[in-house]
Amino acid sequence: MPKNSVDVHVGNRLKLRRTMVGMSQDRLGQMVGLTFQQIQKYEKGANRIGASRLYQFATLLSVPPAYFFEGLEGQPVTSRDGRQLAAAVPADSPTTSFTREDVELLRAFHGLGQQALRRRIIDLVWAMNDAPNADLAALPAEDDAA
């Protein structure tokens, strides 16, 4: 049976959050009475996570249950036999799979305590994204920031 895109997305979000808090698959499994292999299957989307289990994960990882579904807007809804029942994924939708580097950057970013600094970093990254060859010296200095 093919993997369901929603199960894969939820599994990726589980892996992202678990990694962000620095928890191993083994530790998370122990906390809910599962093996690390089962956690691995959930994270890969090979096994569907039931509602009560998802609620456990949300509680243990300090996120609302809706966290696991963020970014699913526009994803297709499929039947058990794989037939598409609703909207297709837009071509420009972001990937739901994260690299170690993505997670490392996110963990470091969350470690920053100052909201103003976080905002400046976001603005810097967007500026770099909009103009990949732009001279960074052209960006406003700290004294120029609002």
Rank of each mutant, 00 (worst) to 15 (best):
P2I: 04
N4D: 15
V6E: 06
V10S: 07
T19H: 06
S24H: 02
Q25K: 13
D26G: 10
G29M: 00
F36W: 02
Q40E: 14
K41L: 12
E43K: 12
G45N: 13
N47Q: 09
A51V: 13
S52D: 13
Y55A: 13
F57M: 03
A58H: 03
T59Y: 14
T59R: 12
T59W: 13
L60G: 05
S62K: 15
S62E: 15
P64H: 12
Y67P: 04
G71C: 06
E73Y: 10
G74M: 12
V77Q: 12
S79N: 03
R80C: 02
L85I: 15
L85C: 08
L85Q: 15
A86I: 01
A86D: 10
A86C: 02
A91M: 07
D92M: 01
S93H: 10
S93K: 06
T95Y: 12
S97F: 09
S97W: 01
F98D: 06
E101L: 14
E104Q: 11
L106E: 05
A108P: 00
L112I: 15
G113K: 11
L117D: 10
L117Q: 04
R118V: 07
V125F: 05
W126T: 04
A134D: 10
D135T: 07
A138Q: 13
D143S: 07
D144S: 15
A146M: 07
